[in-house]
């Protein structure tokens, strides 16, 4: 199958690549661009581990082909804080023990970044609904909810 040239802006960096049409965006980010912070848990759009921002909106990167990202703006977990300088949302996850194995965490973070921009003071119910499309097998969600509350206090608005 022919490869298609694409130009994608990921975390503010322009990438020019050629991709087979069937290549999933999740695989492209992880294996072509080596941005392995985006994780793959189900490849059928349920678990939410592969959530990224596509033109600012959270989407499942396992349900989009890389070729469709041509000309678009993508943000992954790597665009947030670094290990030495965490983003306030990441800090809140750390302080509230909102992660255990950490595999689902990048997907949660990328779901929550735009959510907290739109809902700077979320209620507990709003938080539960916001993270309903992300599965966490380890935490039982309780500490994630607490972390989002804390993040809403920490984040500048």
């Amino acid at each position: 199958m022919d490869k298609f040239p694409i130009t994608v802006n990921v975390n503010g960096v322009r990438y020019d690549r050629a991709v087979e049409p069937r290549l999933l965006l999740s695989d492209f980010l992880r294996h072509d661009l080596c941005l392995t912070g985006t994780h793959v848990g189900c490849e059928h759009g349920i678990c939410g581990a592969c959530t990224i921002l596509f033109d600012g909106e959270p989407v499942r990167s396992c349900l989009i082909f890389a070729v469709q990202a041509n000309g678009h703006d993508i943000r992954t977990v790597e665009s947030l804080g670094s290990t030495e300088n965490l983003h306030p949302l990441q800090e809140a996850f750390h302080e509230k023990h909102a992660l255990q194995c950490g595999f689902c965490t990048p997907g949660f973070l990328m779901t929550l970044i735009p959510f907290l921009e739109k809902h700077p003071k979320p209620t507990e119910e709003e938080i539960r609904e916001a993270i309903d499309g992300n599965i966490c097998r380890c935490t039982g969600y309780e500490n994630i909810i607490q972390a989002v509350k804390l993040a809403s206090e920490k984040m500048p608005r």
Partner: peptide, 17 residues
């Protein structure tokens, strides 16, 4: 608070894939 969090939270933890 956990030592391993910063790596996991920033997408810098290496998993098998």
């Amino acid at each position: 608070l956990r030592n391993e969090d910063a790596q996991l939270l920033s997408g810098k933890a290496r998993f098998i894939d």
